[in-house]
Structures are given as structure tokens and as C-alpha cells.
Amino acid sequence: MASDGAVPGYGLSAPVSRRKMLGGLTLLPLVAVSSAVPTASADPGDSATAADAADTSYLYLSPHQAAVLDAATRRLIPGPGDDPGVTSPGAHEANVVRYIDVMLGAFSFSPPRVHAGGPWSNRAGGSVDFMANFVPLDRAQNYAWQQRIANLRSQYTTGIALLDQLAGGDFTTESKSKQNSILATGQAVSFTQVLFGHAIEGMYSVPEYGGNANLVGWQGIAWPGDIEPRGYTDAEVEAPQGDTLAQSGIIGMLVQGGWAHAIAKMGGKAGVNIGR
């Protein structure tokens, strides 16, 4: 906590004169400004534009570990070329491995790259990306995240080694179908679930965390992302937006019983209105 305690503007122990000076500037994110300490490490904005699997300058992962995670996350969230018929960007294009590496190496930065700042980025009308200025961790947060990341590092080291072992040495050289079955069944499933959760985070979080490169995660799902300070107009809030889905593939399965099945497993009541 010693280092965090000295950050001006964080908590009400800041000098009165400073508060008065800044108090009149509406919406100036004082905390974010005061913690905008330049670091020697790679800026997340830079990494976000360098979605390149050949980039091997990782904080924590070895090149081979990164390659295993790249191969595995291509199976979890496939992009063009990973699975037949997939056209939108996947985990590889979003640089999910970078997201995971920044998470595991969060304490290489000061402040640690755990909580992006605010009140907004420069993507929706803001002139400055305040999200790039990470918020210092307090004593309890620091204690918890040191512990959490140490645990995650161990899970990743063990999990990657397990994938290699189940592939007979090198996961990356296995066929896609064998990779699928390693990830979906047996010993590796609990690691797959952890990795999939983080892959989802890396796809769809704000890019300041190192993933969602070039915002491809959001573009693939028509998600506008962070929207302050612009917001939405009242008309945008209220507007109808017709868009009919083809009932094929997984959607068709849900309509034809999959939905009712999943809800029943959750102890609920489900229904389908089709053809009305």
C-alpha cells in the first residue's frame, strides 16, 4: 500500500489547495490524470494495433506457451481459416493471448494493469483515453491480486503442460479435431473452462487490457462498446430495430427443443412462439 498511499487525489487526503484548484473543472477525471505515470512497458494502445501472432515479446508467457494458447483459443473462438464457414474475427485476430499475458504480467506495470481508468476512452467522443491510465490498487486489492495472479500463473503453467502432454508432446502440431477432443473431454476440461472464460474476456473487454485488437471482438457481434461521453439519444433508446435471424445451426437447435432443455436443467419454465 505504501506506493499507492502517496498518489495525489486518491482519497481525500490530497492537499486542499489542489482540490480547490481542480474543483471547478467539471468532469476532469482527477484521479486518472494524477495516475497517468508513463511506463517503459508497451502501451496497450500499441499492442492493440499490432495484432500479430508473430509478436513474441510477451511479459510472462514463453513463445511456446503463447503458441499453445494461440492454438487452443483458435479452437474455442475460431476466426477465418480456423473453422469452415467462419468469417468473423476470432481469438487470434483479437489477440486474446496478449490479453492473457498482460493479465498474468499485470504487476510488471505501475500501477498494475488490473483496473483500467475512467471516466471514458477516446472512442466515443472523448479527446483523451483515460481508460489507458490504470487505477492504483489499494492495500486490499493489491493483496488479493498478487495472490490471484500467482495462482493463475500456476494454473496456466500446469494447464499448458497438460495440453502438450495429452497431445503427445506439442499441442500446436496436433490436428484441429484432436485439439478439440483434448480441450472438450477428460483431464483438460477444467483448464479449458478457465482459458475459455479468459478468452471471452479478451475478445470483448475494452482494448486497454491488451485484447480486442482493433476492436474486432466488438465488430464481430455488433456491439458499440464503451459509449461515454457521447451516450445514446432518446430516439436511439426507443427505436424499433427489425432484424430477423435465420433459424439454422445452433439457433435452429435452440428453437427445436434445445432452449426448453437448457431451461429445464436450470429448474425453470420455457416456451417457444414460432409461426404465430
Partner: peptide, 17 residues
């Protein structure tokens, strides 16, 4: 910040899921 001032309350809360 600016809790004891006037007008809005600048913050590091953001649209960050």
C-alpha cells in the same frame, strides 16, 4: 474527486464491463 465541491463528481468509473 470534488465530493465537497459543486457540480459533477469526476470519477474513474467507466463503461468497463
Amino acid at each position: 474527486s470534488n465530493i465537497e465541491g459543486q457540480g459533477p463528481f469526476p470519477t474513474v468509473f467507466s463503461n468497463d464491463e
